[in-house]
């Protein structure tokens, strides 16, 4: 696998889009790891009773999936900061798409700023964010 170096990165570059698995089994596994098992995340019917269209993906799972995407894009990098805004619900058992783009680079710090977006199956923006990614020398 080619390791992306800072010198390979340019403003405007896209990170490869990913469609993460947000099936009920994966979300339940995440909630178990997070000790964060609420019905709105792991039970469609219970989530509907709370007013959601179906069970929803926890915000911290969305953020963590984005981090994993960054690590696949730039293996060995260090994400110094990630800032995500959970704007709308992402539904469990739906198809969601993660995307990213380089919006700034800093030659001295050897960092790149990236925009991050998760789009829901119906086209809504579920999560937006930014991250500061530091590359190895």
């Amino acid at each position: 696998m080619k390791v992306l170096s800072y010198d390979d990165v340019e403003l405007g570059d896209d990170l490869p889009d990913e469609s993460p698995d947000v099936s009920m089994s994966k979300v339940t596994a995440f909630c178990t790891a997070a000790k964060h098992v609420f019905e709105r995340f792991v039970d469609h019917e219970a989530a509907r009773k709370e007013g959601f269209p179906a069970a929803i993906v926890p915000g911290i799972m969305s953020q963590s999936l984005l981090l994993a995407m960054i690590h696949r894009w730039a293996p060995g990098c260090t994400v110094r900061k990630i800032d995500t805004v959970f704007r709308g619900s992402l539904l469990v058992d739906s198809n969601v798409t993660m995307s990213g783009a380089v919006t700034d680079t800093d030659d001295e710090a050897r960092t790149a700023e990236v925009d991050l977006v998760i789009t829901a199956e119906d086209g809504r923006t579920g999560v937006i964010g930014t991250a500061v990614v530091e590359f190895k020398d």
Binding site: D17, E18, S19, D21, L65, R72
Partner: peptide
């Protein structure tokens, strides 16, 4: 929209 997402 791009149609090239990778399933993970």
């Amino acid at each position: 929209p791009k149609n090239t997402s990778i399933e993970t």
